[in-house]
Amino acid sequence: MRFNIIGYFCKEGFRNTLKNKKSTSASLIVMCFTMLIFGVFFMIGENINNVMEQIESAQGIQVFINTDVSDEEVTQIGIDLKEISGINTITYVSKEDALNQMKEKFKDRQDLLTGLEENNIFPASYVVTLTDLNESSKVQDEIKNVVGDRLKKLTSKDETVSALIRIANGIRIVTGVILAFLIIISVVIISNTIKLTVHARRKEISIMKYVGATNSFIRWPFIIEGIIIGIIAGIASILIVAIIYNIISQKIVASPVISSMNISLLSFGQMFNLIVIVYLLLGVGIGIIGSSISMRKYLEV
């Protein structure tokens, strides 16, 4: 019995959608536009986050310890560093490791390094990676605190990272503002579309009211109309975004600057689930809100 009613609602919803082809298309275009714009910013944001992670994991904060600090104390510093929140991994680089790295780096000029075996001037260090790049300066302060005057120096990719953080935050704000604006426009357009169907079917609605239909019963076909438009717009947008993204990301990765930086972009597949969820929520949400707004006037019989 319930199945039958749901079938009735869906049938009516589809009928509504097909009846006003012009305004349904207008809603579809506006919703696709909203979703595409949102998709572009969303994917740029996701990629910047991803690049930040790559940079961070390739190059963490390096904490150099003064050479006059004893081995036991260096070990103790390692233990203390583990206590700092926001640190993901800690790798110890001993004086010998540091020397070996140098030897590796200057393979052709071993003469520069002679005598260093006996008198190793390279400091031991800890390479620290972070759980959240936004915490970088806070964690650095903590590290300075913990290591105190035993700290020789501290290096990080701060400038690159903080520039990226600024860009990422900027994009988030811009996305938010644009999205809010586009959502409002979409809601208005879709509610106008549904208003047309509601108006075209006002006679039917009034008959339904006289026969004793509840408001929710009357509302459902129109909500489903909104949902159908939302879902079609969502699916169309996903297809368009996927095609465009694949073309553009290949171009970007192939460009000399990016390939020299050895940065990889996310594949569309990696963002697919999230985008599907976001698009369907957007589509269904806008559809429901738009149709509810358009129904208000007509339910007061």
């Binding site: 009613i5 006679k203 008959i207 339904m208 026969v211 004793g212 239909a213």
Partner: peptide
């Protein structure tokens, strides 16, 4: 309720117009 202007749904058959009233009250 019955009105002077009948108030039937033009795109539904006689049967459907009557059944419609039963759909609305969620009859089986």
């Amino acid at each position: 309720v019955v009105f002077q202007d009948f108030r039937l749904l033009p795109d539904k058959t006689v049967y459907e117009n009557v059944a419609f009233a039963m759909y609305i009250v969620k009859a089986t």
